[in-house]
Each structure stands twice: as C-alpha cells, then as structure tokens.
Write a protein that binds this DNA or RNA. Structure first.
Length: 319
DNA sequence: AAGGCGGTCAACCGCCGGGAT
DNA sequence: CATCCCGGCGGTTGACCGCCT
C-alpha cells in the first residue's frame, strides 16, 4: 500500500525560499520550537510542505550554522570519515560543528571527490586508481568464477592483495602521535590543492588477505582498528567543539550519537559501536569475514552494501 | 557581446526506520 | 501484530552564476 503524500501538493509552493518565508519560519521556530513539522507550515502561515520547512530550517536557518568555506582540517576530517563510514553524511556532519549533511555531501560531490581523483585516489574506495586498474586487469585474466551471486555484487568485491596507501591525513591536524601507527585498512589521503599523486612513495603496504583473516578474532581486531580511528576523529571533534560546544547539539540523528564534553571521543566511539550492534552490522561483518566464499569473490552471504554500517569504508569496500 | 559550458548549491524526491495507535 | 505517521537520510535535480570561446 502506497503512502499518501505528506502534504497537498496542489496547494504547496516549491522552489527557492523568499526572505519573507524565511522570516515567517524563523519567527515561528524561535517562539514555538520545531516540534511537529507537519503542523509548522500551517501555524507559521506558510504554503510549504512540512518537509520543505524542516529542510530549510536545518540546512539554512538553524542557529550556529557555518556558511563560510570549509577549512583544510574540515576537509581532512571529511576524507577520513568518508573512508571509514562511506556516504553516511549525517554521521560525518555530526563531527563537523556548524555543518549540515547537505553541506558535506555537496562539498564532497563537487570538490573533494575531484581532488582525490586528481591525486590518483579513487574517491569511492579510497585506493589508488592505478591499483584498482591493475586489479581490474588481473580480474580480466581470471578463469570464470563459479556461481556468482545473482545480483552480481561479487563483481564489486575488492581484489585480494591490494596495496593500501596511507597518506598523511592526521599529522597536520595534530591528530596522531609521531610514533608509527599500527596498520590500518583504509586509505586516507590528505587533500591538498597541488600535491602530487605519489601513492608509491609510501613504503607501508598491506595485503588485503592480511586483514581478512578467517576467524572472529580478526573481526574484533578490525573493529578495534576502526575504534582507534574514530578515537582520532573524536579528538578532533572535541578540539573543534572547544569554542562552539552548542553547534552540534541539534544535529544528532536516529542513532542517537551525542558527542561533546571531555569524553566526547569515547562517547562517539561507543555510540557508533552501539549503533552498529543495534543494526546488526557487527554481526554482518563477522559473518562476512567468516565466510570463505567472500574471499573467493562469490560470497553467498554478501548483501546490498549501501548504507550498511561499515560497508563502504575501506574495511569492507563492497561499493 | 553573446552563447555555451561547467561548477556550485539549495531544494526536492523517494525510501526507510522507529514510535504511536 | 498490523498499520499509520513522522522525521531522517542519501541521491538527484535544476536554477543560478562565472568563466571561456
């Protein structure tokens, strides 16, 4: 059964908001709060859909929003988080005080993904494009795979033994200690305007199979790795929030991730892990890692990856 | 000067999950 | 338990703007 439209489209104005409409919406929300958005247009005297009002408020009118350009630190953080979380824009935006998911998504699509490509990094997988091409070439000369899944998802599974590149994302932002970091699974590329693409100059290489061990302990190790990275992110968030602690307060989404305060990093990590436990993603990861067919490129348990927890990040690049 | 073209970003659309009934 | 309603999310669209030819 299809859902009825959220509002009467015949009597609803669409398109750009006028200053008068903005003023009405602001006046209403400042005195009554947001509450039930479906009632807001009527009560505020607007011929708009409730969803449109909510979007206009959260993306443009909400207090403490930043409208200036993204900083280098914000760029680094977006790339880092995208490598770990994929296109979970709301989660990423939660770590950027004053930025909305729409802001981050637009900035990624229009600027950052291009910068990464110019640097020879594939923005989807965060891997060197040259390595991906090499892998595609290697796949082309493989014998036919038996019994691939009907939806063809196996074709998108990462090839084994891909070298992973760890460009410097953290040091500039003061995120990492100078000591060598333990091996990580994702490729983090600091996006600098004219920096040359030089994935091969990083001596540190990991084999994909090194990460994809075949027991649950490996899954736990992977989770610990991710946790470590999120701790770094949380630290940035804490620092960024030092001067604008209220900015992110209204941005918590359905996962209930609330960060801030002295233990903001830990809270964020716990919230992410809890969220993925609730959604069963951690279980899914464990199942995937335990499934030998996964490594053979013909996983029977692979499922649609978009929007699923860790899928999309470097850990499970099934995009 | 004008038209084409590409980049940017606000806004819309459809889907999904969760709470209420 | 089923259904409805609402808010949230990610993907996509289209208007606007500046640059180039």
């Amino acid at each position: 059964m299809g859902r009825p439209p959220c509002c009467d489209k015949a009597n609803v104005k669409k398109g750009p908001w006028t200053p008068e409409e903005d003023a009405k919406l602001l006046a209403y929300t400042s005195t009554h709060g947001t509450g039930n958005w479906t009632n807001v247009p009527q009560r505020a005297g607007l011929k708009r859909c409730g969803k449109s009002c909510r979007l206009r408020y959260t993306n443009y009118l909400r207090p403490n929003l930043k409208h200036e350009n993204f900083t280098q630190e914000e760029e680094d953080l977006i790339v880092t988080l995208h490598a770990m979380l994929g296109s979970r824009w709301s989660l990423i935006a939660n770590q950027l005080p004053g930025r909305t998911d729409n802001d981050v998504k637009n900035y990624w699509n229009t600027k950052l993904s291009k910068k990464l490509r110019q640097r020879g990094i594939d923005p989807l997988t965060h891997r060197p494009i040259a390595d991906l091409m090499h892998s595609i070439g290697a796949l082309a000369i493989r014998p036919p795979q038996p019994a691939t899944s009907p939806n063809g998802s196996a074709a998108y599974l990462p090839a084994p033994a891909l070298p992973l590149v760890h460009d410097v994302a953290y040091h500039a932002a003061g995120m990492l200690p100078p000591t060598p970091a333990p091996p990580r699974q994702v490729v983090i590329a600091r996006v600098e305007a004219d920096a040359p693409a030089s994935p091969t100059e990083h001596g540190h290489e990991l084999k994909w199979s090194d990460f994809l061990a075949d027991d649950a302990a490996a899954a736990a190790a992977a989770a610990a790795e991710a946790q470590q990275q999120l701790a770094v992110v949380g630290q940035y968030h804490h620092e960024a929030n030092a001067g604008s602690s209220s900015a992110a307060a209204g941005g918590n989404d359905g996962c209930g991730i609330a960060v801030g305060g002295d233990d903001g990093a830990a809270a964020f990590i716990d919230a992410i892990l809890d969220c993925d436990k609730e959604t069963g993603v951690d279980q899914l990861i464990a199942e995937l890692l335990a499934d030998p067919a996964y490594y053979a490129g013909s996983s029977s348990s692979s499922s649609s990856s978009s929007g699923m927890g860790w899928a999309g990040m470097g850990l499970l690049n099934a995009d």
